[in-house]
Design a protein around this nucleic acid. Structure first.
Lengths: 140, 140
DNA sequence: TTGATAATTAGAACCATTCCAATTGATTGA
DNA sequence: TCAATCAATTGGAATGGTTCTAATTATCAA
């Protein structure tokens, strides 16, 4: 394991501990799987990749770990139409572009000013805790 | 049926015909159900409401009709996390606010200028055909 | 009217996800 | 150190929204 991997596992342990949760080998494998290839894998994708490092891990555990990581704010869920949920370790404010040609999900940085403008369109009675912006289209 | 209902059914027929599809009693009932209460019902909701006017309609037909209406650009699908798909006859550019208190989905008008700014954050290689903006939060 | 095509229908199948009950693993306190 | 307790993992069953299938019914065009 590289130094930077060890560092990210440290921050994983930190955030888990903050929520009173344990650092388990399964959680480490699932989290490092997401960091390794940031291509918005599904739970099944993560399962397949995690099994390379830990052949005994179960799909149920992958779901459990992903949910835990989401709750600890280490990763984000990405939904597109009714497809399977995808997972994303990018914590910066960003939008998603769904490429209809390839099926790929691409991160698009979101300028803070635009985020503020978006929040401003809400009537005062509505207080947003999260915004999700999704583009659908084709890459040329 | 009121004059305005008849008018909307006329535009339904028009758009269906444009796509080479027939105007059926089921499609009329499903469409008018969506116009009657614009509260983003699920397919099951639409089914329950449509049955009042047409007790023999089936859930499969409701799904078929909703899909047809989406394809004819008469209604929009709204997805939120992994909940059931909801349906919306509002064709103006708008965002959705999901109220965590009530579960309600609220339309929020989207200024054209903001829409343009959003499209501008995409790299030139990505051409968006649709944008979806969803807020999650609480109403106060 | 007749044949072709479109639409509806009931129920089966699907698939991502969640639930459940049993087991395994880790931590705490005697 | 050794229980006792609690957390986490596991395989498989169950769930729920949606889609598929095959049969029937309705509509249209010749």
């Amino acid at each position: 394991m590289s130094d930077s991997d060890q560092q990210t596992i440290d921050s994983l342990s930190q955030k888990l501990a903050d929520s009173g949760l344990r650092t388990t080998p399964q959680r480490e494998v699932v989290y490092s799987t997401l960091l390794k290839r940031r291509d918005h894998p599904t739970a099944e994708d993560v399962f397949a990749r995690a099994k390379v490092d830990m052949p005994t891990i179960s799909l149920a555990t992958v779901y459990n770990c992903l949910e835990t990581l989401v709750q600890c704010n280490l990763i984000k869920q990405v939904n597109h139409e009714r497809g399977p949920t995808r997972y994303c370790p990018n914590l910066q404010p960003h939008a998603h572009f769904h490429d209809e040609n390839t099926g790929a999900t691409i991160d698009v940085d979101l300028p803070p000013a635009l985020l503020a403008e978006l929040k401003a369109i809400l009537p005062p009675s509505l207080e947003a805790s999260a915004i999700e912006i999704t583009f659908r289209g084709k890459s040329v």
